[in-house]
Design a protein around this nucleic acid. Structure first.
Lengths: 338, 338
DNA sequence: TTGAAAGCGCTAACAG
DNA sequence: CTGTTAGCGCTTTCAA
């Protein structure tokens, strides 16, 4: 910081030592005599010495910080993931820099590149719903930036990934709707670009198959912008209703709340007649009306696992060749009886 | 970053210039010949030159980044403020670093000091509900760190502040309850430490006075942790109900949703009989059941205004002596008819 | 075990 | 208008 603070030089001068000795004492390096070390540490303590991380970064060419890209922090799923990330990162002395893509590819790329230029040591990213071209990530990765994907992951990118068991989560939710007697179950989902979209669609289909219900493509509606615009959702709802669904399975946090909102706004009379099940980590579901069955992702844990993997990559002595994709179980929270 | 990138030195060598000339061309400084400037810029473009912000920070003793402290990003009010902050900051070429205090004084102080040591150029902060001692902020401020407070501001701290018109927001909400025929209106609020707590209590009282309703201290419940723990809220609700309130006015986002949740959980039968009005920026209020009347703060705008003030402080040529406290109007969104 | 010296990438006097 | 030089605060050879 640019406010007067004691530097290593000051300490060295005050103690009649060289800056290198002070540095060594502070960093607990090499064989340095216990005596001088104690002396230095005591003095540093006394003057409330704070190392300048900027200088250290420049010298060491790393920053002890990790970058995070999510579409929106105002989304309980992502904010919980972030809390998980922080819980590990701070323990391991990493700082965390959060950026939002707002589901825009352009913004995502800009943010990633900004982070990279700010010397982040690694990147945790959930892709935006617009993102198709991840060459910019490949190129950073090739230059040595460790990257771990979570939630929305690309295929054909060899690195660690952490996802929820999307197939099972969707299967369970859809099955739950079927077991409550629903037969015409619509599926409202995200952009086809996203991994989660495909996996969740498969789970939905599998449940239909198990109960011998025909899959009808027209019952599936995609929202390219992940429900960022209410018009997008209202349009989807408008197209879906004439097909008389008795249930809807929705595949993401933002879409779930947005869809209920759109239903209530455009067709309040049917809103209560359609059973809703959807992915959401909102901590307010209990307040919702109409109520819904929710698929909760282990968001906090996802953040923790992803961060551990990332830090292991950052601190690895030799290049990593074995990558894992961790799959975490979701939880089905059934709708409260009315 | 530690990935091979061309530096100013590389460009200088390639073009047969000195690093300072290159730097000047890049920064568009001094009188430099159009010709060389073009040459440099073209080459920089070609090799996709990215300045190393770390090096620049070290040299210039500033980082072009501003720190933000909020209690929680998983709170629509704060996430909207952050979006407002970003909207201005990015335009002005500042980067933004977000930290959460989780309503803990200790965490808040730790985060601020970390940010300060990372060379932020300025700080935007909403105090945690635990915070009473702001000496650590005074000391940073005295050392030259520009600080702008928003939402939860200290008194006796001379700097720019941006707040909502808490008095009027509370007055309006309370008056609305009274005009709907409520006479025993409880007030659930945050820690007494917070500025917003005091201001909102005053608005509540003033509305009571206007309609000749006696103020009863026992109807006011404080939550020291701002509703971070559900037990805290359930306890408050439990103490309030025996007093038979027919309305509750709640003074913050987290408390509003938490209180409804607690009511529903502990006393579902009365939850619908009590009229609720509360501060909240949740974009899901329309889904809530029971529904409520909400006081919305101009969160996005608050972020924008605070950022503009902060940047003006950062870039001020001479020390600032005149400070302003901007007060923004809230909006009362009345409960939907049932 | 300690110190001297170089250098991370950049900016900014100062000279020319 | 351009180059030389020093230095931001820190780490790290290399030599003593």
């Amino acid at each position: 910081m640019r406010f007067e603070t004691s530097t290593i030089k000051d300490i060295a001068k005050a103690l009649g030592l060289s800056t290198s000795t002070v540095s060594r004492a502070l960093r607990d390096r090499y064989e340095i005599s216990e005596e001088t070390k104690k002396l230095v540490l005591a003095y540093a303590e006394k003057v409330n010495y704070r190392a300048n991380p900027i200088a250290r970064s420049l010298k060491e060419r790393r920053s002890y910080s990790i970058g995070i890209i999510v579409s929106e922090i105002a989304n309980n799923f992502f904010s919980q993931v972030i809390n998980g990330i922080e819980s590990i990162a701070y323990d391991r002395d990493y700082h965390v820099i959060i950026s939002q893509s707002h589901e825009s590819y352009k913004q995502e790329k800009l943010n990633v590149e900004h982070l990279a230029s700010r010397s982040i040591d690694g990147l945790l990213i959930a892709l935006s719903s617009e993102t198709q071209d991840i060459d910019y990530l490949r190129s950073l990765y090739a230059k040595g930036l460790p990257i771990v994907f979570f939630d929305r992951v690309p295929k054909d990118f060899e690195t660690h990934k952490v996802i929820a068991n999307n197939f099972k989560g969707s299967f369970d939710a859809t099955e739950h709707l079927i077991l409550s007697g629903k037969r015409t179950i619509a599926h409202l989902t995200n952009s086809e670009n996203l991994s989660i979209t495909k996996e969740r669609l498969e789970g939905y289909k599998a449940a239909l198959v198990k109960y011998h219900i025909e899959f009808k493509p027209e019952l599936v509606k995609y929202c390219q912008h992940g429900g960022m615009h209410s018009a997008e959702l209202e349009q989807a709802v408008k197209e879906l209703l004439p097909l008389n669904p008795d249930g809807i399975f929705i595949s993401s946090d933002r879409l779930t709340t947005g869809c209920i909102m759109a239903l209530k706004k455009t067709n309040p009379e049917v809103a209560h007649k359609i059973a809703i099940a959807g992915f959401t980590n909102s901590n307010l579901v209990e307040l919702f009306n109409p109520s819904l069955t929710s698929v909760k992702q282990p968001a906090f844990e996802m953040g923790q696992v992803a961060t551990e993997l990332l830090i292991s990559m950052i601190e690895a002595k030799r290049p990593i060749t074995e990558f894992e994709t961790k799959v975490l179980d979701t939880e089905l929270v059934k709708m409260a009886k009315r």
